[in-house]
Every structure is written in structure tokens, then in C-alpha cells.
Design a protein around this nucleic acid. Structure first.
Length: 873
RNA sequence: GGGCGCUUAGCUCAGCGGUAGAGCACUCGCCUUACAAGCGAGGGGUCACUGGUUCGAACCCAGUAGCGCCCA
């Protein structure tokens, strides 16, 4: 057995343990051992069969790095999969990354810009080659972070969304959707980023309340004049109508007439449309079909022309004076020109309104009319909703399911083409005469055809993640064994976009089998004041920094200890230090057990051969084990961590270890077996939360290879022992009371005091030795002359404090206790005197109150007597 | 504008019908041979507000206020 230092040094053990786990293949899943039955996450029963338990890691963006939110997400998955392995499941935790089309391309373009180059200077092929180089570098950093965290992922199955196999999956499903008529090409208004120069889907647009302007403009003159309000005056150059509500009396006479569009001299019609809100502004709206999604719909209904007035960079392309101006320069210029003509009726500035921004670069998104590829999501979204409605997939916590339904039940068609170079190229080829051919993975395009230059949205490939990573479309052993996955662990922030997409594709590709049995959602990591972490605020925690300073176990434990289902996690430096202290506590307690010959090998004796202390801690262990299992079922990691923290520290360390010392000194050899058993179980229970420290200690304790392959403890109900729990509870109570007296009296902890205990006939009778030792009470000599007398639950303790006792302190104490007892007596008396209460409250509640009253009255009598007996002053 | 959630000790959060809890922070005393990253003791809360239901409400219901998130 190696000597353990008195302080746990995480850095010494973490790298070593991790490398050993990997080299021994503990993380590597074996589908051959998995039955196809599947198992509920958490697992209801410990089964003899190697039932599969599978989790796919939500793939981080290859171009980023792991932040503390990832650390939380990973800690949860690691805890679940480590426990599943210990429970005997054929366990897979599959890692990987996604190619993050826009983000990655942006990063590499920025690099190029430093060299004074653009991607066009390199050309598509060379640029993509360059992105792959960056991917290796950036991805490697993430892998290093995962190892530091201790992630027990199956590295042999690491995947990347651009891998050949996953690319084949993309092409396969594209072809299937295309052939089923669920992918189509159409000219629509899409979200366009004029900086990234690509289309975006709805979810890649972030809305914020921004300050803008609301300008009211008079179109036409005299009788025929009509006033419209807009936040985007520059788009008036592309107006092709004014719309009013058909029932709006103010404008009824104008419907069907034409009005002159200022600055342009064009005549545009006034049309009636149900979708105009008569209550908003003047009730008349300008219609710019090429630059607004709502206007586009109005245009379609009324067969209006679309006039595009900006190019892909947001530069005005029409009407002399404004030609070449950026859209934000054009806006004031257009307003000024209108004002010069006396057409500005009102201006409101600043005007708060919702503005969409590119989620990648924050540029204001421009609604743009363009030809793009779309997925018709209606049948897919319906299926995705139904799978949750009928319980094939459970969203946890269930309150969040509503958000999922809100999204999938009202989903717009999904724009999947991106004008980028980095990504999966759209597998559609165009013939010389406008023919369109979708090419499957094993097919060749006809000669002379040209492939669509665009690539697919990254979410298109990450939506396939739960099965493309397992080998789909091939019928692999992994797919058979591990799909559907047991649980998806992710933040509630991407519930609707990523999760919904995986649900849609999984159900579509896998014959109605959803990709997960459970979606377990966690919250965001926040700082100690509940504030969002942000670079500008300077409150960001780097997980690697914490791992270095407090250890990976402490970092993980801090996160898990705050992880209540679906709610945010607040963390701080001080709590990380607290977790480190806890690891150190476990370290030293186990060190104590080892130094005292804790024995794991031999079986535990029957209860009859054990002391009450032994039976008590084993009873507590059984309860705690059962509670931990129950908490895992509900993904209540905070509860798991809390249960084990308190059991380990308050019960095992503070009491059992102290009692065990006394038993060992008295020659109770079986204590070593109990110590061994308790620490063995405790370390195994803690292992999923704190893998490194538990591995190091457990190997020393057991002499076995690795705690990773040890069995998960089972709650032994036969060890539940109410008698022992009551007995030790009484011991704790007595000891605490006497310690309180000692503390009040200013007696130093180490100072020995003579005392007479009368424990005859009480449950404490067999614990006199422990009580005297823990309280440092000597046997009374013949000359014993007590100076103080305490009564604790009918046990009388007389002490000779050697010298005058602090009467004032004692009086204060007694008066405080007396006040508490009186309050208690008054409360219970009021209840017992209440006829309604006596008539309607359940018997056990009445009995409890009665017992409380009896106790309170006894306490009052005792305390009053003690106060009366105190010397004056 | 629509929807959801939150408000409990200084801070972060549990508790969700029957005596208000935890961690950290705070006060006092201790190097008591596993651990000072520790040990012992202690102080601290009209459970946002107003009504209602109930024998009994932090907990259930209604309303009010403040905060947060999502969607438009």
C-alpha cells in the first residue's frame, strides 16, 4: 500500500488515471455485449443482461473551446455513463464535434485577412483545405479539455460531422427527403447576413430590442394621399403597393386606386389585405415584397411585382442618388430627400423595435428574396411532436415539454442552403437545359451537369448525430445496439432547435424510432450572483483554470451540486474551494481507514455481532444508497451530490470515524470490516461525480484494478435498523448538549473534566465509553464535587468544572432554552385545545403534537428548576 | 404584444399541506496524532405583498408588485 500524503493533490493523479482508463479500454463500448432490449436511463432494475446504455455527446463546435457550460453538460453525462457502467450496462458515450459552417469559415477568413487574402484569392479547393488544417488544430484543443475533465468517452468512436461516413449519411437523407418531395427549391424571403454573405435559418437569427426610428411618410397628394409608417425608410424605393385593411372605413374609397411613390415617380396600387392591422400606426402599410417577409406574402396574394433594391452586401442598387450607398447610409439619405419634398409627416426617434441579428457575427439581418433550398417540415415536425406526446421520448423536467411543443407545432419550413464553402455540398446537379438531378451517395451525376455551389446548414448534419455517428445508413452493430440512445443531456436553450431537428430526422430515418428515450435538460451556468457569464462582464470561469487550481473532481462536483433539473447553476470560486475541501476530506478519511486496517476483502459480519454504531452507519448507508438511486432516476444531480456530501462528512467522518476509533482501541476487530465496507461503498457512490480522487483511494483500499469496473452499490434493506439509529441519535444528542455546555462555559476542547453519568436503564448505557471519550469526561474521583448538573432527555450529567462556573452564561443559555420550550408548549397547547384540529387532523399528527407538548412541559419544569438552583448574579 | 418561470438566512439554492433547511459567508473557542483544504459551539429568516381555501399554508387558489427567460 503506497503512503498517501496528508493533502490530496489532484494534478498528481488525474493525468495518470485518465491515461490508464483509456489504455485499459474501460471507455470502449462493446455492442456485442448489448442486448437489443434497451433500458430506461438511470435504469430501473439492475439486470443481469448487458443491457445497452448509450449517450451521444452534443457535439461542440470544432472552432470553439469548451466553456464552463460544456463542463456542466459533460459532468452530467460522465456521471450517468460511469454509473451505468458500474451497474453492468454495455455503455457507450460517444464524443465528437460539428463543423460549424459559418463560425469556422469566419475564423479562417479572418486568419486569411491578416495575410491580406480573401477566400476567393485561394479558390474553393485550397480554402477548404485550409479549413481542414484549422479544424485539426482547434479540435485538438477541445479533445485535450475533455481529457482534463475526465470525460469517459469512447475515443475509438469519435466522430466529426464532415467525416466520410457522416457525409454519406447527409447525402443519403437528403436524397430520401428529396425523393419524398420534402426538399424543394424556391424563391423566398430568407434571412440574409450581408457580412457572412449567406442565408440563415430562423434559429440563426437573434432578436433584440434596438433603437431605431419610425418615420411617417405621405404617399400621393390631396384627396388621394395616404400616410404610411416605417422603420426602414430606404426600402420605400422598392415599394410596389400600399395595403390597408378591407374593412377600414378611412381608406375604403382608395382601394383600387393608385398613388405616386415619392422620389421614384412610380405609380403603385392601394390594395386591401386582411393581414393589415388597422390599429397599428395609420392603418396603412407600405408593401416591399422583395425586402420583408410579410410584404412578400401580401405581394403573392395580390400578384405584385418584387423590386430588389439592395445587393447581397446591403448596398442600394437602384435610383441614382442613392445608388451605391450602404443600407444604413441610405436610410437617413432617403428620409432627408423625402423631407425636402415635404413628405415626412412624423418622426419618432429613438423608436424601440425588434431587430434580427446574425447569431454568428451580430450583423443586422436583411430579409432577402432569393432562390434557396428548403425542407418541408410539416410531416417531420408533426412526428417529432407526437413522439413526445405519446411518451416514446420523455422530456425532463416535464415543464419544459411545452416549449418543445410550441416550437415543433409551429415550425416554418427550414432554409438549408448556405452560401458558404465549408460544409456538405448540396448533392444536386443542374443540366444544361435547367434539368435538376439529386444524386445519391453511390450515384454519378450525368456528364456535363454542374453541382449546386451551396452547402447545407450545419444543423442539417448535426440533426443526424444520434444515428449517423453509429454508422447509419449502414446497418451496423452499433446502430442495432445503441439506437435509440438512452438519454440526451443538453441545455434547455437548444431544446427546440437542435433537439427538435434530431427528433425529426431520427424518426424519419429510423422508421419512427425517436433518437432518445429521455431528453434531460439542464440550465445555464451563472456566476455567484446569478448573473450570466460574459466576457465583457469579466465573470467568465474557465474550466481548465479551476481544474488546475482545485482539481477536476472539485470542478465537476461544484457544477453537479448546483444542477437541479432544468434550472440554472450558480457557481463561484468559494464553492469550488468548498468542493476541493470535500475531496480532501474524503481523501483524509479514507487515509484514516487505511491506516487503521480497513478491510474490504472479508464479508461483513451479521448484525448480531456488530455494535450499535456499526449497525447505525450501515443503516444510514443503506438509506443513502437508496436515496441516491432515486435521485438519479429524476436526474437530480444536486440531490445526489448533497446526499453524499452530508453522509460522508456529517455522518461518516464526524461520527462514525470517531466512534470507530474508540471501538478499535477497545479491540473490536470487526470495526475494520465495517470501515472497509462503508468506505468501499462511499467511494463507489461518489465515483461518477468525482472520478479521480475516488479511483486513487479505492485502488489503495481494495488493491483492485479500478473503481471504474467495480459494481455500483446496492441498497441493502436488511441493514436498515431503526433501533440503532435511535440509539446513536440519542448519543449524538447527549454529546452535542454537553459540548454546548462546555462551549458556553469556556472550557477548552482539550480540557478534561470529571463527570458522573447516570446512564442505567437508558439506550445510552452501552455507550458510556464513547461518550466519555468524545466529551473528555474523566471518571469521578471519591472526592467528586459537581459544580454543574445537566439533564438531557432524562439523562443526568454532573460535572466538576474545577472552579466557579460562568453563571451569567449559564443563565442566558437556560433562559433561551426556556423561551423556546415555552413557545413550543404554547403552540402545541393551542392546537390540542382546538376542537376542529382534534376532530379533523389525522391521528399521527395529533399524537406528534401531544408528544411535543409533553416534552415541552417537561423541559419547562426542568429548566425552571435549573434556573432556580443557579446562584444569584 | 403572447407565453413560461422565479421571489425562502448576507449570497446561491433545497423544501411544495402538519415544529423553517443546506452550502458558502459571519461570531466565539481550539494545531483534540485522518484531515487547519481541519475540529467543536453559536448567531441569523413576519418564506415578496394582499386576499381566499383549510383544523392547519413557505407549500393550494386568485390578484398585485418586482425580476428573469423564450417567442413575436
Amino acid at each position: 500500500m503506497p503512503e498517501l500524503p496528508t493533502q490530496y493533490a489532484p494534478a498528481d493523479v488525474e493525468t495518470r488515471s485518465y491515461e490508464r482508463w483509456v489504455s485499459r479500454g474501460y471507455f470502449t463500448a462493446d455492442p456485442g455485449e448489448a442486448s437489443s432490449a434497451g433500458v430506461e436511463p438511470g435504469g430501473a432494475e439492475q439486470s443481469g443482461a448487458r443491457e445497452p446504455y448509450s449517450v451521444v455527446l452534443p457535439p461542440p463546435n470544432v472552432t470553439g473551446s469548451l466553456h464552463i457550460g460544456h463542463a456542466l453538460d459533460h459532468s452530467i453525462q460522465d456521471a450517468l455513463t460511469r454509473r451505468a457502467r458500474m451497474r453492468g450496462h454495455a455503455t457507450l458515450w460517444l464524443p465528437g464535434m460539428d463543423h460549424a459552417g459559418i463560425a469556422t469559415q469566419n475564423v479562417v477568413e479572418r486568419e486569411l485577412a491578416k495575410e491580406g487574402l480573401s477566400r476567393h484569392d485561394l479558390g474553393r479547393e485550397a480554402f477548404v483545405e485550409r479549413v481542414w488544417q484549422w479544424k485539426e488544430e482547434s479540435g485538438g484543443r477541445i479533445l485535450g479539455q475533455m481529457k482534463k475533465l475526465g470525460d469517459g468517452v469512447d475515443w475509438s468512436r469519435e466522430r466529426f460531422t464532415m467525416d466520410p461516413g457522416l457525409s454519406k449519411a447527409v447525402q443519403t437523407i437528403f436524397k430520401r427527403l428529396f425523393d419524398d418531395g420534402l426538399i424543394y427549391r424556391a424563391e423566398r424571403i430568407i434571412n440574409w447576413c450581408p457580412r457572412c454573405l449567406t442565408a440563415l435559418s430562423d434559429i440563426e437569427v437573434e432578436h433584440s430590442e434596438d433603437e431605431g426610428e419610425l418615420v411617417s411618410i405621405r404617399y400621393g397628394d390631396g384627396e388621394a394621399a395616404i400616410i404610411v409608417a416605417t422603420t426602414r425608410a430606404e426600402t420605400m424605393l422598392g415599394d410596389t403597393a400600399v395595403a390597408v385593411h378591407p374593412a377600414d372605413e378611412r381608406y375604403r374609397h382608395l382601394i383600387g386606386t393608385e398613388v405616386e411613390l415619392p422620389l421614384t415617380g412610380r405609380m403603385i396600387p392601394i390594395v386591401a389585405d386582411e393581414h393589415v392591422d388597422p390599429a397599428f400606426g395609420t392603418g396603412a402599410v407600405k408593401v416591399t415584397p422583395a425586402h420583408d417577409p410579410n410584404d412578400f406574402e401580401i405581394g403573392r396574394r395580390h400578384s405584385l411585382p418584387s423590386i430588389t433594391v439592395m445587393d447581397e452586401r446591403g448596398t442600394i442598387t437602384v435610383h441614382g442618388p442613392f445608388l451605391g450607398l450602404d443600407r444604413f447610409e441610405a436610410r437617413p439619405a432617403v428620409v432627408a430627400a423625402l423631407r425636402a419634398e415635404g413628405r415626412i409627416v412624423a418622426e419618432k426617434r429613438p423608436y424601440l423595435h425588434a431587430v434580427g441579428h446574425c447569431s454568428r457575427c451580430k450583423t443586422v439581418v436583411e430579409p432577402r428574396l432569393s432562390l434557396q433550398w428548403f425542407v418541408d417540415v410539416s410531416p417531420l415536425a408533426k412526428a417529432a411532436g407526437d413522439a413526445v406526446r405519446d411518451g416514446r421520448t420523455r422530456i425532463h423536467p416535464p415543464e419544459l415539454a411545452k416549449r418543445y411543443f410550441d416550437w415543433v407545432d409551429d415550425m416554418h419550413d427550414w432554409c438549408i442552403s448556405r452560401q458558404l464553402w465549408w460544409g456538405h455540398r448540396i448533392p444536386v446537379w443542374y443540366g444544361p437545359d435547367g434539368e435538376i438531378v439529386c444524386v445519391g451517395p453511390d450515384e454519378q451525376p450525368p456528364a456535363g451537369y454542374v453541382q449546386d455551389p451551396d452547402v447545407l446548414d450545419t444543423w442539417f448534419s448535426s440533426g443526424l448525430w444520434p444515428f449517423s455517428t453509429l454508422g447509419w445508413p449502414e446497418k451496423t452493430a452499433d446502430l442495432a445496439a445503441f439506437y435509440p440512445t438512452s438519454v440526451l443531456v443538453t441545455g434547455y436553450d437548444i431544446l427546440f432547435f437542435w433537439v427538435a431537428r434530431m427528433m425529426m430526422f431520427g424518426l424519419y430515418a429510423m422508421d419512427g424510432q425517436p433518437p432518445f428515450r429521455v431528453v434531460a435538460l439542464h440550465g445555464m451556468v451563472r456566476d455567484q450572483y446569478g448573473k450570466k457569464m460574459s466576457k465583457s462582464f469579466g465573470n467568465v470561469v474557465d474550466p481548465l483554470d479551476w481544474i488546475e487550481r482545485y482539481g477536476a473532481d472539485a470542478t465537476r462536483f461544484t457544477l453537479l451540486r448546483g444542477a437541479n433539473p432544468g434550472s440554472d447553476v450558480a457557481i463561484s470560486e468559494e464553492w469550488a474551494a468548498g468542493s476541493r475541501n470535500f475531496c480532501n476530506k474524503i481523501w483524509n478519511a479514507t487515509r484514516f481507514a487505511l491506516l487503521n486496517g480497513a478491510n474490504v476483502a472479508a464479508p461483513l459480519p451479521d448484525s448480531a455481532e456488530l455494535t450499535a454504531s456499526d449497525r447505525w452507519i450501515l443503516s444510514r448507508l443503506a438509506s443513502v444508497t437508496a436515496s441516491v438511486d432515486a435521485a438519479y432516476e429524476e436526474f437530480e444531480f444536486a440531490k445526489v451530490a448533497d446526499l453524499l456530501y452530508h453522509f460522508a462528512w456529517d455522518e461518516v467522518c464526524d461520527w462514525y470515524v470517531e466512534l470507530a476509533k474508540i471501538q478499535i482501541a477497545a479491540g473490536h476487530e470487526h470495526t475494520k470490516l465495517v470501515l472497509g465496507h462503508v468506505f468501499d461503498a462511499l467511494l463507489r457512490l461518489l465515483h461518477p461525480l468525482a472520478p479521480f480522487v475516488t479511483e486513487e483511494l479505492w485502488r489503495a483500499l481494495s488493491g483492485a484494478e479500478s473503481i471504474m469496473v467495480a459494481e455500483w452499490p446496492t441498497a441493502d434493506a436488511t441493514r436498515i435498523d431503526a433501533v440503532a439509529e435511535a440509539e446513536i441519535g440519542a448519543v449524538q444528542n447527549l454529546i452535542t448538549e454537553v459540548r454546548r455546555f462546555r462551549s458556553d462555559q469556556g472550557l477548552k476542547p482539550g480540557q478534561r473534566v470529571a463527570a458522573r453519568l447516570d446512564l442505567e436503564g437508558t439506550p445510552l448505557a452501552s455507550h458510556e465509553r464513547a461518550i466519555r471519550t468524545l466529551l473528555r469526561l474523566d471518571e469521578p474521583a471519591d472526592s467528586f464535587a459537581p459544580t454543574a448538573r445537566l439533564t438531557v432527555a432524562s439523562v443526568v450529567v454532573e460535572l466538576d468544572t474545577v472552579g466557579a462556573i460562568d453563571v451569567a452564561a449559564e443563565r442566558k443559555r437556560l433562559e433561551k432554552d426556556l423561551a423556546t420550550a415555552r413557545k413550543e408548549a404554547a403552540q402545541s397547547e393551542a392546537k390540542l385545545g382546538n376542537e376542529q384540529f382534534m376532530a379533523k387532523a389525522p391521528d399521527d399528527v395529533v399524537a406528534k403534537v401531544r408528544a411535543r407538548q409533553t416534552q415541552a412541559l417537561a423541559d419547562i419544569a426542568r429548566l425552571e428548576a435549573q434556573l432556580a438552583a443557579l446562584p444569584a448574579g
